[in-house]
Amino acid sequence: MIQKSLSIKASMPTYDEVVETVVELFKKAETELSDDVVRALKRAYEEEDNEIAKMNLEAILKNIEIAKTKKIPMCQDTGLPIVFVELGKELCLDFDLVKAIKEGVVRATKEVPLRPNAVHPITRENTGNNIGMHMPQINVDLVDGDELKITVMPKGAGSENCSALKMMLPSDVDKIKRFVVEVVKNAGGKPCPPIFVGVGIGSTFEGCAKLAKKALLRNVNDMNEFELEILNAVNGLGIGAMGLGGRITALAVLIEYGHCHTASLPIAVNIQCWANRRASAVLR
């Protein structure tokens, strides 16, 4: 198989290409929000009638423009480097992919620049370059084809700290909505609303958390009936932008599912601030 793909593909992504791509992706994600996220924020500004909430949304929209024009990070919490890799099965890489991604993060920290956020969990010592034990966090999926897709998602702590996971009972299916709404309620203004709510239902303990995070990569304006039902409930809470009251608390509820054990129902809610920063590139 490897022989075959080698003979078909004359060129493969190189170490330097991956490093360069990671730097560029962090630059893009930190300074510019994707169209779907901007559209959702603008719609919230139009629909909001609470004066203070509207003022906050206006500040957010102004902030996005400044960051994009000046090419500077929109938020000082440039997040932790989370990287998703989709590795085509037909690819044959002759270099250390993890090392290339790490080098990309170190360079991005200097060049974008990113705030050094990675610290030792106990001593709290800052490594100064955003890499460390299991950092950057690299998630690899093997997929069909001969492409290498890299997605970066710098994730801030304000919203991450408000996330929650629960091993529910299999008979609690009708309580899923309540759990999600409750997590948002308890978060209040802390995660910088209007938020995006990533939900993972099923899989395993760690699997549902991964699904919840992955859900945040989806187009935020494409929701199904159940997602819209929960979004509606969440917005009925009245937390509003920055937790100072208002109609719009969340911009989207996005759910991913995984089959789970007949005896369990894991559910994870990953909260994302209004700055749902992500950027992708495909290397061939």
């Binding site: 500040a59 902030n63 960051a67 000082q76 304000g158 910088c192 920055m242 100072l244």
Partner: peptide
């Protein structure tokens, strides 16, 4: 941002102002 649980202790002493979270460039 996000508020504080200090409404008793802050009496007669200070104010808490909320600035838009995430608006780092602004």
């Amino acid at each position: 941002k996000g508020g504080m649980d200090i409404s008793e202790e802050i009496k007669g002493k200070g104010v808490y102002l909320a600035y838009t979270g995430g608006a780092g460039a602004l």
